[in-house]
Computed example of a mutant assay.
Amino acid sequence: MKKMVITGVNGFIGRHAKEYFEKEYEITGLDLAANYSGEREPDDTMTYYQCNMSQESAEMAAIFTGVQPDVILHCAGSANVGASVVNPMADLDGNLHSLYQLLLALKSFEKRPEIIFLSSAGVYGNPRQLPVRESDVAAPMSPYGLHKHMGEELCEYYNRIHGYHIRSIRIFSAYGNGLRKQLLWDIYQKYQNTGRIELFGTGEETRDFIHVSDIMRAIDLILSYDGPEAVINVANGEEVSIRELAEIYAEKLGAPQNIVSFNGAVKEGDPRNWRADISLLRKLGYEKQMELSDGIAAYVDWAKAQD
């Protein structure tokens, strides 16, 4: 059986990746936390290591030597735009230093595993035109987006100079069960606390939402791809307004749409509109399987179960 290392395995995408790929790969998980906090506890289907990746290239090198991974999914790092604005150095540490230490840990290896670096649509900032293509100029609006772009450049350098096999995937607006932050979690918490859904902005801002189950299928397709492209958009190529999403959410809660309102305030680092060009991902065989309304319904059921 092939071997896969998942960094940040306790995170939202890391946990889903572990559950998706464990039938095909022998999984080793790395994370800052002392223990794995997946759906099954204790979990004997994975070897788990507590590791501070931003400081421990020697420890990671020892782990990789023992595992000899065929694939590394680098899911570790911060995914909080607002927090990156408040504390950019912490975001730099979590998003860039951890990646650099991982690449250094592999430098002496003869075997070059396939590596997927989880980047972000945040590298684009406010696109000049939609849909935004992988070849468009990066213009990040937040330290988070900047550090993700720096990570992509680091990966390109190691591919070119050291013969690594890294693909950076620019994930757009990910959502799904288990996500305890960002827009969908925020909406649920506001509804629980106030009976209303009051959000930042005007509601006309748009995003390209993709369910985590579709992200997993996209990663699977990318791992089997042998083409030259090093950066790939991961999205559905669909522009959905925040107002439309919030009204769907209210419906799934069984609440009237008039509980949804917007305060007009703009949060630093937030872009106005996103829609991805996913021509390359489609060329690999990607097709969306989770409709937004179904994904939100499942999320509402999951969130209610957490009460």
Rank of each mutant, 00 (worst) to 15 (best):
Q257T: 11
Y286W: 05
A83E: 10
K304H: 14
S54V: 08
F12S: 06
E134I: 02
Q68K: 14
K148F: 00
L103Y: 06
M150D: 07
H74C: 11
D226P: 00
E251R: 14
F209L: 11
G163N: 08
R282V: 07
T202E: 12
M53H: 05
V266N: 08
P143R: 03
V71N: 10
I222W: 09
I197A: 10
Y188V: 10
G82L: 09
W185A: 15
D277H: 05
Y25P: 09
K107E: 12
I248R: 12
Y158G: 05
D294Q: 15
P256G: 06
D270H: 15
C75P: 07
K267M: 12
E19I: 02
A246I: 11
S279T: 12
Y188K: 10
I296W: 10
I215L: 14
H74N: 14
H74G: 01
N177I: 12
A34F: 04
P69C: 09
R282N: 12
V5L: 07
E19G: 04
Q189C: 11
S78L: 13
F12A: 06
I222F: 09
E152S: 05
E291P: 02
Y124M: 14
L96M: 13
R112P: 04
L99M: 04
G201Q: 04
I27C: 09
P88L: 10
I166R: 02
P131M: 03
A255T: 06
K252V: 04
A33C: 07
V85T: 11
E291F: 10
K107L: 15
E59R: 12
Q101M: 13
Y249Q: 04
R207E: 04
A303R: 08
G122D: 09
P127G: 06
L130A: 03
L245T: 14
P143D: 05
S120K: 08
L32D: 06
C155A: 13
R40P: 00
